[in-house]
Design a protein around this nucleic acid. Structure first.
Lengths: 215, 215
DNA sequence: GTTTAATTCAAACGTTTGTTTAATTTTGTG
DNA sequence: CACAAAATTAAACAAACGTTTGAATTAAAC
């Protein structure tokens, strides 16, 4: 019976990501989900509570993965950073629609929803802080602004997943790629770039002082 | 008489950034601008054309600055990168509202507006490509993915300008900062971080191979 | 098989939306 | 002052919005 609920949730996810929360009508959602208009109020109470349910439905997953990664003592901090990048790129690209909503609504107008999205972000931030401070204690990573570094990872990915058109043109990809090929290439490119950036950024041997001399 | 037009434009800018395009009604705009409802259709034709006018009104400024920076031969590529960072952080933070709109609408639903925002992004991208390739030819910068590097700069800034609440909490700033203090601290922190990242990322001595050995 | 609860539906609710109308006021020009 | 063009207004428009209603249908329980 949760079947119909999930149909509505995934229709809403698609549409919110395509056209934004305000740009999507409950009639749009009902039509795409193939249910009667009134079922949305019946199941979720209101359009806004539907969005809250959607966030609840999708979140909570990332935390588990990151927690596991953190506890794995067989991996070096460098390995963990690489896996972190792989995880986030894959996750965002494979849940592009949901991520677009999270991004848009964390600056949005409903306090309830804003707080929820921010809480999710903070929870994930904590895990990454652990990975990097661990690398610092092991004298592999240098001193960096950790929350900003997280912003660099997430921001870079978000920047290139906001607009397929811009991504294709600026990355000089063919414009008529189907979605499978497109996400595959974007993913590869993002992972390689972020790993390169983080390797240079975090490496304890690349002290800030050194680079300054060169100027 | 362009006075009233500009009143409407800046009211619209505020509201679009606060509540999104769809979340803002023309009545909201008219009220904040202190003009009659009908004046918006009278001056701009429609709500959508108002947004186009707004983009036209604000864009085109960045290009000039970047062009000047590029042509300045007294600056080393390292200096140019630093100034680039200063410029973008200041510009985005001081035009936060407009930037939020640009960001939201480049993935938006109107093709006309989407194309315009993408064109502006591409024009700016070109200028940055020049700066970095110049540094590469002078054997100061190593080989990097340039469009991705631009995405890292813009994405990091965008990530931290999307939500004041998240920024305050994650960066461990006091939550009750007034806007002046908040933007000042955010700006300083963003600039320092991005310069550090780019110094390590671009420096020709930080070859990818070296970092790999350490693992 | 009857009764009760959960589900589905078409229709309508009252607002709010973007835009237009037609009358009025203000402005600029000869 | 007179006259035409531009600017401004309140009112109204049809369409779309989120939500509710109450009857009809299906499913579950006894």
């Amino acid at each position: 019976m949760g079947d119909k609920r999930e149909h509505i949730l995934s229709a809403a996810e698609e549409l919110f990501a395509e056209k934004g929360f305000d740009g999507t009508s409950v009639r749009d959602i009902a039509q795409r989900a193939g249910v009667n208009l009134a079922m949305i109020s019946y199941y979720f109470g209101s359009k806004e509570k539907l969005l809250e349910s959607l966030i609840e439905f999708r979140a909570g997953y990332a935390y588990g993965i990151l927690d596991e990664l953190n506890k794995d003592e067989s991996l070096s901090p460098w390995d963990k950073v690489d896996r972190l990048v792989d995880f986030y790129v894959d996750r965002i690209i494979n849940n592009l629609r949901f991520h677009t909503i999270m991004w848009q609504e964390s600056g949005g107008r409903s306090d309830e929803i804003k707080n929820r999205t921010i809480a999710i972000k903070l929870r994930n931030l904590e895990q990454i802080v652990k990975i990097i401070t661990d690398g610092q204690q092991k004298k592999l990573f240098r001193q960096v602004d950790i929350p900003m570094t997280v912003g660099t990872i997430m921001g870079t990915i978000s920047y290139y997943t906001q607009s397929k058109t811009y991504a294709c043109v600026s990355l000089a990809l063919q414009e008529n790629l189907d979605d499978k090929q497109y996400t595959q290439r974007l993913s590869t490119r993002l992972k390689a770039h972020l790993k390169q950036v983080l390797r240079a950024h975090l490496d304890i041997r690349n002290e800030t002082g050194k680079a300054k001399e060169q100027k």
